[in-house]
Design a protein around this nucleic acid. Structure first.
Lengths: 335, 335
DNA sequence: ATTAGCACTCGTCGAGTTCGAGTGCCAGGA
DNA sequence: TCCTGGCACTCGAACTCGACGAGTGCTAAT
């Protein structure tokens, strides 16, 4: 009883099923001649694999398909696959003319969705503390102002604040000068202390506190986490293997951000090169028919790129593409 | 032969079909008692409507469904419907705590997709020329820099430029001071002239031209046009009436931006309060099974909000929601 | 101009049937 | 002990068939 061969049978089943999308029977496998044993032997192995919960049959007289556990076992045994040269070149060229951070993320997610033919997701790089370089305030109407914070690490955060009451132009200009003088070049606790003191000064404008707050959070690493995705059509494309009513919840989850972010965080915590969640392992009803392949990138590997598709997907290829894009992204983001 | 009644028949067919998603027959219509005539009469009217190309039957022994032309005729006769109070309140509250332009757009598109249960699209407000308020340059690594332009109308544009060759810190700082002194407060042709002269000065850094170019385009009204969408899952949800293989191309079109932008521009040109494109009227294969309802908003009504769904959609309701959101958006954006 | 009536069409639904892929198990062979 | 060929069996897919009925167009009567 060759444990070895049984793994091979599982691998063959997964590969066959992924490419044909049809339950695979013992006969077909035997005729493929890659295993060198008869269909009867394969049947015996299949029976054991089924007992182990790695494969299942949709109905009695059909072939077998891998279960989530089967995919898991398959993936765990996988050696890192090489990325086709054409894809390597594509990655190399795609970002040569990216124009800012948005652009990099946008291009990455598009590229990855094309390489994998899945839905690609890219989490915006979560940035570290950084010194304040310049604060700009722009009046909008009588009661609002836009505050723009440019950080030393080339990030730009902005938000509107309400002025509360009329502020004279002179007071406004003075505030801008003062807050810049106070905050420029500072980081973290020292920045916070300086700004708090400044905002508490006796003859200060009433909205100084709001300004100080925002500057501090901006310097602390930006506002909110975001995930962008592309290639949603790959979910719906013929042969994705997802039924129409399965894909609506997936789209919802993608748009909802929260769900996806939590999942990505969990995956980041595992710390492997490339992590894979298969079907129910996502712990989300909506995603229970899909798998997600993700890799960390950036400073401290704090952000994630990933590809999401039906559990029946080309794991080796997807993993290679995700890994490669993550590497290139790291290069770009870290400079 | 009452032309009047025939219109009523068409209206009844559209309304019935929209709510039931099933071909509607003469008998059902007669029994609804809103027309006050017998099924035979309705049959005669139907025959004429069919000749006119407004309705069709999927197969001989089935009821009728409206054609694109039928919907068009229906929509053209439509009086502006009122928006449910609950929806009005939703719109009123949703934007009270929007935090910047991104946030406004994001919230709008989410809201509209919920109100209409369709895919909502919002084009970023295309902004007008505006004076330069402040230019910030931030070094990134040895060879790149980020340039940030804050405009007087509270817009922030940014992009990385390549420095080409090593630039000393002093030269860098000097450049920042100079370009700010040159550009601040200027607009349009004068801005361009001043910057061109500045960039052409004898001992200028080699990348001054790139900076000047970007500042000019930023002041001219921003960089690229963008459309965001939300509610893609509504396309896939059961009962959307779109087959699985119809929705993939639609998703592609949504992500591709270009197609959508061109369509929205065309619609903006028509200048009505709310414009509707039905099925093939979109002139795009991918969208030939969908309709789009759009309204302009913002200064000069230069940008568009819209909702996109199956041709068989609730036109009156969708039009009311789109109109309302466009109005509120105008208020917010114009302040 | 409208209506009631009637003959006709044709798609849907369920039952019954065949077909074959795929299985499990057993007995014989290396 | 492990593999293989063979065989009986299961069960879903695909097809046929007929009844049913929703819906139509036409005609004659009002």
């Amino acid at each position: 009883m060759s444990e070895e061969r049984r793994r091979a049978v599982l691998r063959a089943i997964v590969e066959d099923y992924v490419s044909t999308h049809e339950p695979v029977g013992s006969k077909a496998l035997a005729e493929a001649r890659t295993l060198g044993v008869s269909s009867a032997t394969i049947r015996n192995d299949m029976a054991i694999l089924e007992e182990e919960g790695l494969i299942a049959q949709p109905h009695t007289s059909a072939g077998r398909i891998p279960t989530d556990l089967g995919y898991r076992s398959f993936v765990d045994q996988l050696a890192a696959a090489a990325l086709p040269d054409a894809h390597k070149r594509a990655i190399g060229t795609f970002l040569s003319d990216a124009v800012d951070l948005n652009d990099v993320v946008e291009r990455s997610v598009r590229l990855l969705s094309q390489l994998t033919r899945q839905v690609a997701v890219v989490q915006y790089p979560s940035l570290r503390e950084s010194a304040v370089r310049r604060i700009e305030l722009v009046r909008m109407g009588a009661e609002h102002a836009l505050i723009v914070v440019v950080s030393a690490d080339a990030r730009v955060d902005q938000r509107t604040i309400s002025l509360g009451e009329a502020t004279s132009d002179e007071a406004f200009e003075r505030t801008v000068r003062e807050v810049n003088a106070t905050a420029e070049g500072l980081t973290g606790a020292r920045l916070e202390a300086a700004l708090t003191m400044w905002a508490a000064a006796p003859d200060q404008v009433p909205w100084a506190g709001a300004v100080a707050d925002f500057v501090v959070t901006a310097a602390r690493g930006g506002t909110v986490e975001r995930v962008v995705f592309a290639g949603a059509s790959n979910l719906a494309r013929a042969g994705s293997g997802l039924e129409a009513d399965t894909i609506a919840p997936v789209l919802d989850a993608l748009e909802e951000q929260v769900v996806l972010l939590r999942l990505l965080h969990e995956m980041a915590a595992e710390g492997d090169d490339v992590t894979v969640r298969i079907g129910a392992e996502t712990h989300h009803e909506a995603l229970s028919r899909t798998s997600i392949v993700a890799a960390a990138y950036g400073r401290d590997a704090a952000s994630l790129v990933g590809a999401l598709g039906p559990t029946r997907m080309d794991y080796p290829g997807t993993m290679a593409a995700v890994r490669a894009v993550a590497r290139y992204l790291s290069k770009v983001v870290e400079l």
